[in-house]
């Protein structure tokens, strides 16, 4: 197990290095620079600025300078908001984004699985059709449309929930709902079909032949097996929630990382672009890693450590 984890950490570091490298050079290949705005700056000031941020050095030198500072977990100062470092921005934005992402993930997973189970157990019944209709809507409506609709209906027309911002639990409901609907629908559909398949398996019949109660059969024997495919898509769902946070944060004016990320790209704020990208990548890579670990725990046939001599 430890062997596996170390190996994975190693390959995660390599992945991250590739991402850093690609982002770095791609970013510099976008036309424009942080300083060419309409506002005229004198040549001397421009030079000074560029030399301060090492922008006058050859690109590969800049690259190594950057790697060196990243290795010490220093993402440098922001070019545009010169009073702040990227670390500070991340430190401020991340907790909010993390909260939004995690609540969404948890809501999506639990409600999705529950909906899927109920639909499967009431296979071809009214509840099944209802749940699956909801799921199809959830999958096909993009989160920004969902957000707009929710705001219009619940916040503006009925006035029962706040329109925007992230200040109290009540404020969290709409953004989370908007972001969670899609993943929830995907999980619900997958859980349902997987559950239906598992319920026809021989070992379920064995469990019935033991005289176990329906509840035990569903939750002990069927669910774990039915959830295996769900766990495999959790990684990509986490990714889609992550990217969803950019949009949702923007719509609901939530002060998370998404705001900095989008702004930084528009402004060619190189250190912020790099910092947020690296941060998002790390979070995502960690998620995928956790998903694999979870899969190994759920399915005993998958051995995470060295190959079993068989």
């Amino acid at each position: 197990m430890l062997h596996y984890i170390l190996k994975r950490l190693g390959s995660m570091a390599v992945t991250l290095l590739v991402i850093i490298t690609l982002t770095f050079f791609l970013m510099h290949s976008i036309p424009g620079s942080p300083f060419n705005e309409e506002r005229a700056t004198s040549e001397a000031v421009q030079k000074n600025l560029e030399s301060f941020y090492h922008l006058d050095e050859p690109l590969y030198v800049q690259y190594f300078i950057y790697l060196k500072s990243v290795a010490t977990f220093d993402f440098g100062p922001s070019i545009k908001k010169s009073s702040q470092t990227v670390n500070e921005m991340l430190g401020r934005g991340f907790p909010v984004s993390f909260e939004l992402g995690m609540i969404t993930l948890i809501v999506a997973i639990f409600s999705g699985i529950l909906l899927g189970i109920i639909a499967a157990l009431r296979h071809n019944g009214l509840i099944d059709y209802l749940a699956m209709t909801v799921a199809v809507v959830g999958i096909s409506v993009p989160n920004f449309v969902m957000a707009t609709l929710l705001i219009q209906q619940l916040a503006v027309t009925w006035g029962i929930l706040p329109v925007a911002t992230w200040t109290s639990p009540k404020h969290m409901i709409l953004p989370t709902l908007a972001l969670a609907t899609g993943p929830m629908a995907i999980i619900a559909r997958l859980t349902r079909s997987s559950m239906l398949e598992v319920m026809t398996q021989d070992y379920i019949r064995t469990a019935k032949a033991k005289g176990l109660s329906p509840v035990k059969i569903v939750f002990k024997h069927a669910l774990k097996n039915a959830l295996l495919p769900v766990v495999t898509i959790l990684g990509s769902l986490a990714a889609s929630i992550l990217t969803g946070t950019f949009v949702i944060e923007k719509i609901f004016a939530i002060p998370g990382m998404g705001k900095y990320f989008v702004e930084s790209i528009n402004q060619r704020d190189y250190p912020v672009i790099m910092g947020t990208t690296i941060f998002y990548s790390t979070v995502l890579i960690m998620m995928l890693f956790l998903v694999d670990l979870a899969y190994g725990i759920l399915d005993p046939r998958i051995k995470l450590h060295k190959k079993e001599g068989k």
Binding site: Q201, A207, A209, N225, P300, R301
Partner: peptide
């Protein structure tokens, strides 16, 4: 079921739950 009358099925490869 399982206490007074028990049953054994044909295929032992699929009759057991793989995750328990």
């Amino acid at each position: 079921r399982g206490s007074d009358i028990s049953m054994i099925f044909q295929d032992p490869m699929t009759a057991l739950n793989p995750t328990l």
